[in-house]
């Protein structure tokens, strides 16, 4: 009934997405390095993208895929600026640990 592939329903994809999202959340909670936290954020974004594509497949519309496209765009922009900031921080602080980087100004 809700199959989007043979023997694969939308729920399978949602479960997968939940798994990836939760892994990402755990990563952010447990790791202190800004770079790896950043990557976990990307993972969470991708989990969301996956559900969007699955629903696009379910409904047969292009809107969700366009949405995914924009999420990719924003993620790319975010990474460009975020990594530049991290580079600056490292250059000045010689660390990327968020335990140390807890002030707005040095």
């Amino acid at each position: 009934m809700m199959e989007i592939l043979p023997n694969v329903t939308i729920n399978h994809y949602l479960m997968l997405s939940v798994a990836l999202f939760t892994i990402g959340a755990f990563g952010i909670l447990f790791r202190r390095n800004a770079i790896i936290m950043f990557m976990c954020v990307e993972l969470m974004l991708n989990a969301v993208n996956l559900t969007l594509v699955a629903f696009s497949k379910l409904w047969g519309g292009t809107d969700a895929q366009v949405f995914v496209f924009f999420i990719m765009v924003v993620a790319a922009a975010e990474v460009a600026v975020g990594l530049a900031i991290l580079m600056m921080l490292y250059r000045n602080m010689h660390t990327t640990s968020t335990d140390v980087l807890d002030k707005l100004k040095w």
Partner: peptide
């Protein structure tokens, strides 16, 4: 979502 009764559209392969 199990409780929802969504019928998947006969989605064409063209969408992507």
């Amino acid at each position: 979502t199990d409780e929802l009764t969504i019928v998947a559209k006969a989605s064409s392969a063209e969408v992507g």
